[in-house]
Design a protein around this nucleic acid. Structure first.
Length: 499
RNA sequence: CGGGGCGUAGCGCAGUCUGGUAGCGCGUUCGGUUCGGGACCGAAAGGUCGGAGGUUCAAAUCCUCUCGCCCCGACCA
């Protein structure tokens, strides 16, 4: 192993390397190597995914959705039925041509997303307006043969959830699209403490086969944007492609209006880049698999026994404290680990620190004599700064509040960073300066609404229009002139380099 | 698919030019001493040198072929 100073490259030195270092040191995942572009999500990283799943799943159920599962393999002909869909996904498909030792009559593609096969089954299940709305979600893996991969942010295979719904009319479908976008936005902000901009994709960035794509865009510490979730209005495109017709209430016949929406393990990458620092991972308590690590300090066997006994008592009390989200459909308790490994305390401090555990408790003979505990929050904040010596009873009574405060503090900090990285630009020279080299910003600029201008901006700067903000999610609309063409524009759009 | 680089112990590398039968650091295992911010001492385990063929008394090293990986350019949750 290298010197400790080299374990995690400082952000300022090499941001992408820092990102990889944090993931490695926190033991979240590693590149699979033997399978190109794929990763192994290690137990600690998977525990975060499970927290994401548990909370989102409860939110989906609360909005009336049910889970189902569709096949991994999709007949190749399905993909080609929706013109834009084929065009969008064809380059990144993995195809199964042989099975059982024989060449297949019709190859299967490994799902890059499931609109087509779900469309097929919706067609079989829906015949009447009484069958609508149909609201299903699937937790699954998908595969997209990416050219360049990065842990969590873009891998060939990834885990996600895809919601698919069918409705009797466009208004209802549109409402669903917005409802689920808000579910994602609320989850990102409340649970992940990751502020997001909600908006609509431009036509060149929208999902292949959708009428409109909505998204939440998150601000990473290098001022690049991360598309953290999408919600699509599919119109009747897939309904028509898969002949999903129903008899309307008035006796007519119509194609269903569909939506789809998803978030993936990419969220974990967003979590890493929202809060972590040069010492490693930082996790908001609501996403942390472990909330507190107790480090026993002792010299003699007698002290060890005494300290571990006290640690066990404290862990038990903490572990019974309910820290569930108000209104949540499941319970969450403070998760504690007592680190009694045969290592020096300092090594343990670093161990839990780089895993982002929000709270560290040092417990030694001196503390026991004084009836106190030594507490250190992973990131100094209003919830605590530096090593704090707190009477045990007081600590136990305030632990929950400290975690809540810490969660709020991380969100506030992330929002402050996003605001600091956001800027309204009105001159092309300023724009070029903002995106020079590896530079990025959350740049709010006027745009003339044409694909040609959008492409020109991208070609010159690598920055792209991330979204047209929804009301209240960007600068208030006001007329201006396009940053590139000078043509009139009604409102500013979000432009940034993206992951 | 173009341009650049690399395959030697679990990880990071040296050795290759000038052939002589493999070494260093970290990690791992065992024993002991340590323990309020990354401990130390002692012992030990661990390698078909990416693969195949060739030259040679002798190949990690030279030659030929081959496989794989990484980085940079064209797609993307």
């Amino acid at each position: 192993m290298n010197d400790k100073a080299e374990r995690i490259t400082p952000r300022a030195e090499d941001y992408p390397q820092w990102y990889q270092d944090v993931i490695r040191e926190a033991d979240l995942a590693e590149p699979a190597k033997v399978v190109k572009g794929c990763m192994v999500i290690k137990p600690y990283g998977y525990a975060i995914w499970e927290k994401i799943q548990r909370d989102l799943d409860a939110r989906f159920k609360a909005t009336g959705h049910e889970n189902a599962y569709f096949p991994l393999l999709i007949p190749q002909s399905f993909i080609t039925r929706e013109a834009e869909h084929v065009e969008g996904f064809a380059p990144e498909l993995a195809v199964v041509t042989h099975a059982g030792g024989e060449k297949l009559e019709e190859p299967y593609v490994i799902r890059p997303t499931s609109e087509t096969i779900i469309g097929h089954f919706f067609g079989k299940w829906i015949s009447s307006w009484r069958d609508l709305p149909l609201l299903v979600n699937q937790w699954a893996n998908v595969m997209r043969w990416e050219l360049r991969t990065r842990l969590f942010l873009r891998t060939t295979e990834f885990l996600w959830q895809e919601g698919h719904t069918a409705h009797a009319n466009h208004d209802e479908a549109k409402a669903e699209v917005r409802r689920m976008l808000d579910v994602y936005g609320d989850f990102a902000e409340q649970m992940m403490a990751m502020p997001v901009i909600r908006g609509i994709k431009t036509s060149s960035e929208k999902f292949a086969g959708a009428l409109e794509s909505y998204c939440i865009e998150a601000f990473m510490q290098d001022a690049k944007a991360l598309q953290a979730g999408t919600s699509h209005d599919l119109g009747q495109n897939f309904g028509k492609a898969f002949d999903v017709k129903f008899q309307t209430e008035s006796g007519g016949l119509d194609y269903v209006w569909q939506t789809s929406w998803g978030v993936s393990t990419r969220l974990i990458g967003g979590l890493v880049m929202s809060h972590s620092d040069d010492a490693g991972l930082v996790l908001p308590p609501k996403m942390a698999p472990i909330h507190a690590a107790i480090i026993p300090i002792y010299k003699t066997p007698e002290e060890r026994t005494r300290v571990l006994e006290a640690a066990g008592r404290i862990a038990k009390t903490l572990g019974a404290i309910d820290i569930s989200q108000p209104g949540s459909r499941y319970r969450d308790f403070i998760e504690v680990r007592i680190d009694d490994r045969d290592l020096r305390p300092g090594a343990k401090f670093y161990h839990w620190e780089r895993r982002g555990v929000p709270m560290r408790i040092e417990l030694g003979p001196k503390d026991l004599d004084k009836g106190q505990v030594c507490v250190k929050m992973r990131v100094d904040s209003a919830a605590g700064t530096g090593k704090m010596f707190i009477p045990e009873a007081e600590f136990l009574a305030t632990a929950k509040a400290r975690l809540e405060q810490y969660q709020d503090e991380l969100f506030a900090q992330a929002r402050t960073r996003m605001l600091a990285g956001s800027v309204e630009l009105d001159s092309w020279d300023d724009f070029l300066a903002a995106f020079a080299g590896e530079g990025s910003r959350f740049a709010w600029c006027h745009w003339d609404g044409t694909a040609a201008t959008e492409a020109a901006i991208k070609a010159e700067t690598k920055a792209t229009i991330r979204c047209i903000p929804l009301p209240g999610h960007g600068p208030a609309p006001s007329p201006g002139r396009c940053i590139k063409s000078g043509a009139p524009s009604r409102q500013r759009v979000l432009i940034a380099k993206a992951y």
